[in-house]
Design a protein around this nucleic acid. Sequence first.
DNA 1: TCAATATTCCCATATTTCCGAACTACCGAT
DNA 2: ATCGGTAGTTCGGAAATATGGGAATATTGA
Lengths: 104, 104
Amino acid sequence: MVQFVHPARDDITLAGVLAALADPVRLQIVRGLLTEPACMSCTAAAPCPDIPKSTLSNHFRVLREAGLIHTTKKGVEHRNTVREADLNARFPGLLKAILKHADE
Amino acid sequence: MVQFVHPARDDITLAGVLAALADPVRLQIVRGLLTEPACMSCTAAAPCPDIPKSTLSNHFRVLREAGLIHTTKKGVEHRNTVREADLNARFPGLLKAILKHADE
DNA sequence: TCAATATTCCCATATTTCCGAACTACCGAT
DNA sequence: ATCGGTAGTTCGGAAATATGGGAATATTGA
């Protein structure tokens, strides 16, 4: 089980979160991860299936570095989860307020 | 009285708002405009006084184009106000949720 | 006319984004 | 064990975008 780098809970910045979610693709990824009950693989969380893998991976890296998601490696696929607890501890109510308006 | 261009109420996008507020300087400007009761001039709203005028003006332009502020010209100075009503109509609760965490 | 306020114009630099290609890690089958 | 396929990452470069700031430009008030 491999854990990719992401900021500690206290290092999550408001600017980082806003910049990460300012991209429509990344916003939809986070929305998808929160909507689905189980954690999703990277390709499953992609808003449209024809995005090149490297581009998609880049978006996931940005989300990780902003502290929004957490990725673990289970077998051949990577499971992504939104770091809801950390985000709510750092910025209470922010995530919900943003995602409320992320409908298509 | 001159009104600078800014998007109509319905054209304000979530991505635009998040991108505009992802910059710390712009976030502090908006916070300052909301904290002060009266609308402020551009230089008065600057978070630190040594920012070059052109740079500051550029930040105000970004905020205007994202639909966050409204600028009118009163005499020699420009009065800036946050478009709270429009923003709350378009994305209820969003602005407050973001600015709640914009402390320093 | 002169000073103040803020905008445009324009350029250099920095950052972001996108994507192909090569690479790593894992699993199953032979 | 080794081969092959699958899932993602990393690398490198090109194109687009953002940023910062100097200089010149309106516009207004005194």
